[in-house]
Simulated scan of single mutants.
Amino acid sequence: MTESELLNRMQSELDDSYFEELELELIDDRPVSSLIGEDMQEATPTDPESRRTYFRELFRLQAELVKLQDWVVHTGHKVVILFEGRDAAGKGGVIKRITQRLNPRVCRVAALPAPNNRERTQWYFQRYVSHLPAAGEIVLFDRSWYNRAGVERVMNFCTDEQYEEFFRTVPEFERMLVRSGIQVIKYWFSISDEEQHARFLGRIYDPLKQWKLSPMDLESRRRWEEYTKAKEIMLERTHIEEAPWWLVQANDKKKARLNCIHHLLSQMPYEEIVHPPIALPQRERHEDYTRHPVPASIIVPEVY
């Protein structure tokens, strides 16, 4: 990729991210009938028709996620979904689209920071256990206990003994979760060396995304091959029948989001739950009630 091509790519990514936020807002105001019912079509990423197709399909899948949510609540199902992958692989983007139209009391995200001094002395899985779902809940882990197999291994934050103990324990830990009635779904978002390079540069030059870059992210870029080796070992040693890994090809962000959500929906035998019709009650009015004026000093100025 030449410097000119890279600059064009970064500008395109920047424009795309801003247009996407705008279009998401526009979608909320459009009738459902105009967004559902058309098949996906082949189109280039910059083609306006491709954008319309993407958002149409995303909205359709999100409508299915709402049905899934109702089914989970109705049946008391318990779901844990792990999102793993290299930095800038698009985990946060798909999590945002999954949760966007769901009830945060039903579907919540667990994104744990680095362990504190006390947590470092606990059983490794202990701090994750408190985030596991109760009946009728879905928990999405934006990174998970697999930190030990990835960043902790590569950055030497754990000993060889702790690393091996993790691989001895994690299959039984996940089998225990499954036996207790928790469904465990694991996704690895896979991007190429060149794609991560371009996305990191995009974050560096986008003032609204610079917060996403940490010194650890930059170091992970330097240690690409070490992360690759760690990933391969992790997938080989923790791919179990009760909780298999699923790999999402993520070089194309939009396709990765749609493919992941489509696959997630296929992992549960959900069905639409019929709810009784909702009738809006008549507002009660009382002759002895008078609405008091709001002090002008507390009203937010109407700048727009």
Results as ranks from 00 to 15, higher is better:
78 K>P: 00
145 W>Y: 11
159 T>Y: 03
138 I>T: 08
159 T>F: 02
76 G>I: 10
145 W>D: 03
115 P>M: 08
151 V>T: 12
78 K>I: 00
124 Y>M: 05
122 Q>Y: 13
139 V>R: 06
94 V>K: 04
81 I>N: 06
112 L>T: 08
145 W>M: 06
155 M>D: 14
148 R>I: 12
151 V>G: 08
136 G>D: 03
179 R>W: 06
59 F>I: 06
136 G>V: 05
181 G>Y: 01
58 L>E: 02
103 N>F: 07
69 Q>Y: 08
59 F>M: 09
83 F>K: 02
135 A>R: 14
140 L>Q: 02
163 Y>W: 15
126 Q>M: 10
137 E>D: 11
126 Q>I: 05
148 R>M: 11
120 R>K: 14
152 E>S: 11
99 T>H: 10
145 W>Q: 05
94 V>P: 03
155 M>A: 15
86 R>E: 12
143 R>L: 11
173 F>E: 05
111 A>K: 11
107 C>A: 15
93 G>Y: 09
80 V>R: 00
137 E>Y: 01
103 N>W: 06
94 V>I: 15
166 F>H: 00
142 D>C: 09
119 E>F: 07
78 K>V: 01
95 I>T: 09
120 R>T: 09
105 R>N: 12
132 L>F: 09
111 A>E: 06
107 C>I: 07
173 F>W: 09
149 A>T: 03
179 R>F: 08
126 Q>V: 05
132 L>E: 02
115 P>E: 05
89 A>T: 07
104 P>I: 13
142 D>T: 07
137 E>H: 06
95 I>V: 14
172 E>A: 15
120 R>F: 10
152 E>I: 13
114 A>S: 14
135 A>T: 08
133 P>L: 00
80 V>F: 00
77 H>G: 14
65 L>W: 07
84 E>M: 12
89 A>L: 09
171 P>E: 07
177 L>S: 01
117 N>L: 14
173 F>A: 13
93 G>A: 14
65 L>Q: 01
125 F>D: 02
84 E>Q: 13
103 N>L: 11
86 R>N: 14
105 R>I: 12
171 P>R: 04
123 W>M: 04
105 R>Y: 11
127 R>G: 02
103 N>C: 10
120 R>P: 05
59 F>R: 12
